[in-house]
């Protein structure tokens, strides 16, 4: 019973972090219908940036996430202006190939800059826990999860309560309509893409504390992100949160009760199962929006 509870706590904490890591992908797909396969690469970039600054300054890597996310905001902007917007003009079907290319090249660049050995940030609370009776709550996971929820809450508030957020949602609802109220659609899209990358920067900071990572870890991470959004229904932020918790629990239960070696396979098994059996996602949000044409 304790083991089960312990596993569930662990799964939920990780789920919160996964949700943060997937939020950028979800946002970009929901608004633009673009599958950003560079998401894993952006995440790893955020992790390396936080780790590097932590090494240099000794400050808390999670707090350094603010700086990583600022850097990724810029990278996201460049990625949109330099690649995504251009490819969309030529052939929208190729955006996923282009972002995939960015992911592959990006992995190479990271390896050239940071080398190919295992990294992870180990602040003072690394590997320590709070204890509640016989249960333990690892501090790093807890802080990361709280940080993730704060950032997600901030993103949600930004989308709901600011003009930038309203403009982004308006573009998602109807581009033509957005133009007619005077929104510069191209600019709103670029800001949205950059914003998605910036939240991923926070995700990277969390990753740097919770996991060891290599340049090619991006493969595993894009797999997890895809799993989260497939579970939650592509393009839905609340769906992504729920999907993330399901994945976190699935991985935790697998490593506790089955075999830790199969944990990394959980995201892919879930993806295949969901897409074969229930493509609309666990929570019934459809992959395709049905346009009502009268």
């Amino acid at each position: 019973m304790t083991l089960l509870l312990q596993t569930l706590i662990f799964g939920c904490l990780i789920g919160g972090v996964y949700a943060l890591m997937s939020s950028g992908f979800t946002l970009i797909f929901g608004v633009m219908d673009v599958i950003n396969l560079a998401q894993g690469c952006l995440l790893i970039t955020g992790a390396y940036l936080s780790w590097w600054m932590w090494q240099r300054t000794g400050l808390d890597p999670l707090l350094l996430g603010v700086l990583s996310s600022a850097a990724l905001y810029g990278i996201g902007w460049l990625l949109y202006k330099g690649v995504v917007a251009r490819v969309q003009r030529v052939d929208p079907g190729l955006t996923l190939v282009a972002t995939f290319a960015v992911a592959v090249a990006g992995e190479g660049v990271i390896a050239l800059v940071f080398g190919t050995s295992d990294r992870s940030a180990t602040p003072s609370y690394f590997n320590t826990s709070f204890h509640l009776g016989s249960l333990s709550v690892p501090k790093a996971q807890l802080y990361a999860c709280i940080g993730a929820l704060v950032v997600l809450g901030g993103l949600y508030a930004l989308l709901r309560g600011t003009f930038l957020g309203r403009a982004i949602r308006a573009c998602a609802s109807s581009r033509g309509g957005a133009e007619l109220v005077g929104i510069d659609v191209e600019r709103a899209m670029a800001q949205m893409f950059a914003l998605g990358a910036a939240t991923t920067g926070f995700g990277g900071a969390a990753l740097s504390v919770l996991y060891q990572f290599l340049p090619d870890s991006q493969d595993i991470w894009i797999g997890r992100v895809l799993c989260v959004v497939v579970l939650g229904g592509l393009g839905s932020l609340p769906g992504a949160l729920a999907g993330a918790v399901v994945l976190g629990l699935g991985e935790a239960l697998t490593s506790t009760y089955w075999d830790v070696r199969w944990t990394t396979a959980v995201p892919y098994m879930l993806i295949l199962a969901i897409l074969l059996l229930r493509p609309q996602g666990l929570f019934g949000i459809t992959l395709r929006r049905e346009g009502a044409r009268a």
């Binding site: 309203r166 609802s173 109807s174 033509g176 309509g177 957005a178 007619l180 009268a294």
Partner: peptide, 11 residues
């Protein structure tokens, strides 16, 4: 005011 879908339906 356009013919169709002038309002943002999800907002």
């Amino acid at each position: 005011v356009p013919q169709h879908n002038g309002l943002f339906a999800d907002l």
